[in-house]
């Protein structure tokens, strides 16, 4: 029997597979077709204090081995999440990671406080959405803000605080260190890479937001490099994501340093992907000669 359970600091997940924020809604649509309780956890659609309508369409553009999105954090707002979405997820026995976002530091602090009494596994601070004008990525590109805002949230929360990092910075290790300094329980990386696609006939970007976040298999090498780098820079656990679309990818991310992983864009194309990978992991572990999948974490041997 292969043990698929993993630990992200003190939090034990039954397997390393987490649905990535923004690619799973709040689980309701997927629960019609799949057992959402079988996943290690679900990171909710990023939500804000007040409802948000998001960006005008087009919000998605396909590109080589992936896609760009600029949804702009469309979400029903904290109160609806508390009254409707989280209760549904609990009723479906899903392990909940609450992904939260805001325009201001106060937004993050307020939501963190309101989540204090909720039965959730962790809070993921979204410091990395590239598709909104305020907060998010602007915070995630400044180590001082990452550290101070993480500390403010940690101070006010009984839940583990994960910080989701953007790759659109000069040194992601500096950002991870700042999160660790601020008391984060874990860092999740990478969010999407900021990009643009151009329609040469209209000479306009396809996305109405002009730019969007690049995700999918194309960003996987970037994610692996960053995870490996961050693993050697901080001692808090890493939740890895960026283009994962097979059981082998999961293993590679864990070997690079991830304690758990998230699947996002891959499941938008193939909704059954997380469950398919889950079914393949035991066999892969046997092949890689580990009894516990967690043994893979950080076993990368760099060339010297």
């Amino acid at each position: 029997m292969v043990d698929l359970s993993v630990k992200v600091a003190d939090l034990t997940l039954k397997n390393p597979i987490i649905a990535a924020s923004g690619t799973f809604g709040f689980g309701q649509e997927m629960a019609e077709f799949f057992d959402i309780s079988a996943l290690g956890a679900i990171s909710t659609k990023g939500f804000t204090r007040l409802p948000r309508k998001g960006n005008p369409a087009p919000r998605v553009a396909e590109c080589d081995c992936g896609m760009l999105n600029a949804v702009g954090l469309q979400n029903p707002g904290l109160e609806v999440v508390l009254q409707k979405e989280l209760p549904f997820m609990r009723s479906a026995n899903a392990t909940i990671i609450a992904n939260i976002a805001g325009d201001t530091a106060e937004d993050y602090i307020y939501i963190t406080e309101r989540l204090a009494q909720e039965n959730i596994a962790a809070i993921e601070l979204n410091f990395s959405c590239p598709n909104v004008k305020e907060g998010c990525i602007t915070f995630g590109s400044d180590p001082q803000i990452i550290e101070s805002l993480t500390a403010e949230c940690v101070k006010r929360s009984p839940h583990p605080i994960w910080v989701k990092l953007t790759p659109n910075v000069t040194s992601i290790s500096d950002m991870a260190k700042a999160a660790e300094q601020g008391g984060a329980t874990a860092v999740s990386l990478i969010n999407t890479l900021l990009g643009m696609i151009i329609d040469i006939e209209t000479r306009r970007p396809i996305l109405h937001n002009n730019t969007g976040g690049y995700s999918g298999p194309a960003v996987k090498p970037v994610a692996l490099r960053m995870i490996s780098e961050v693993y050697n820079s901080v001692s808090i656990p890493i939740v890895g994501l960026g283009g994962i679309s097979s059981a082998e990818d999961v293993a590679a991310f864990m070997i690079a340093g991830a304690s758990a992983i998230q699947i996002g864009t891959g499941l938008l194309v193939e909704p059954s992907l997380p469950w398919k990978i889950l079914a393949e992991l035991p066999e892969l572990c046997r092949k890689l000669k580990v009894d516990r999948i967690s043994e893979l974490t950080g076993t990368l041997e760099l060339w010297t």
Binding site: T23, G25, N55, V60, N69, L268, P271
Partner: peptide
């Protein structure tokens, strides 16, 4: 018609005003 990714309501890209 709108540019779409998942087709099943989870990605919120195919926004219609």
């Amino acid at each position: 018609e709108e540019r779409m990714a998942c087709g099943i309501g989870i990605c919120r890209t195919c926004a219609v005003a």
